[in-house]
Computed example of a mutant assay.
Amino acid sequence: MIRRMLILLPVLAVSGCGSAPVCSTEVVHKAYDRGSDRYALVEARDCGATTDIATVVKLGRSSRPADTATEVFIADSDHGATDLQRAGNIWISVVWPRPGVLSIAYASKARVFRRKPDADGASITYIASDPLTLPGVP
């Protein structure tokens, strides 16, 4: 019995039992804070057919490794309740209106999972909105 378990153990380890799904990420936009080396990175994260594409905003510093950036905002389209952009992400606008203040406007019908009020010395404001559209020219 023990011998069978020792033989099966490597097979189970290689088969991927319990492994996390592999996600693909596309960078949508990167905005830099004029007052420091901070940046905000917008990503579209696709983790497979059973999940919606997530729109993720990370706040980091150019002087640090990219994997240390903090995820400050995560949302998706709530199963198509809002229109999607080219990369499959929700409509989002990320700007630094003044040093140390990040403003994130996002689709009002999006399903939001995370909204941190601050990170890495910057304060963050959020606005649930929709993109402005100009009237057509007659």
Rank of each mutant, 00 (worst) to 15 (best):
I2P: 08
R3E: 13
R4I: 12
R4C: 10
R4K: 11
M5K: 08
M5S: 14
I7W: 14
I7A: 15
I7R: 12
L8R: 08
V11C: 11
A13P: 05
S15D: 08
G16K: 13
A20D: 15
V22C: 05
C23W: 06
C23G: 10
S24W: 08
S24T: 13
T25Y: 10
V28C: 04
H29N: 15
Y32F: 13
S36Q: 08
S36P: 10
S36M: 11
D37S: 06
D37N: 09
D37G: 04
R38A: 10
R38D: 10
Y39C: 05
V42K: 02
V42W: 01
V42F: 03
E43S: 12
D46V: 06
D46W: 04
C47L: 11
C47R: 06
G48H: 04
G48I: 05
A49R: 10
D52Q: 15
D52G: 13
T55F: 02
T55C: 06
V56G: 09
V56I: 15
V57A: 01
G60W: 00
G60F: 01
R64F: 08
R64K: 15
R64P: 03
P65F: 04
P65V: 08
A66Q: 07
D67K: 05
T68R: 09
T68L: 11
A69S: 05
A69Y: 01
T70C: 02
V72R: 02
I74G: 03
A75Y: 06
D76N: 10
G80Q: 02
G80I: 04
G80C: 01
A81W: 12
T82M: 06
D83P: 12
R86G: 11
G88I: 05
S93M: 07
V94E: 00
V94R: 04
V95N: 11
V95R: 01
W96E: 00
I104W: 00
I104S: 00
K109N: 12
K109Y: 13
R114S: 12
R114E: 13
A119Q: 00
D120S: 14
A122C: 10
A122L: 05
S123C: 06
S123D: 06
I124A: 00
T125R: 03
I127F: 11
D130F: 07
D130I: 09
P131V: 09
P131E: 14
L132F: 12
T133H: 12
T133C: 04
P135I: 06
G136P: 05
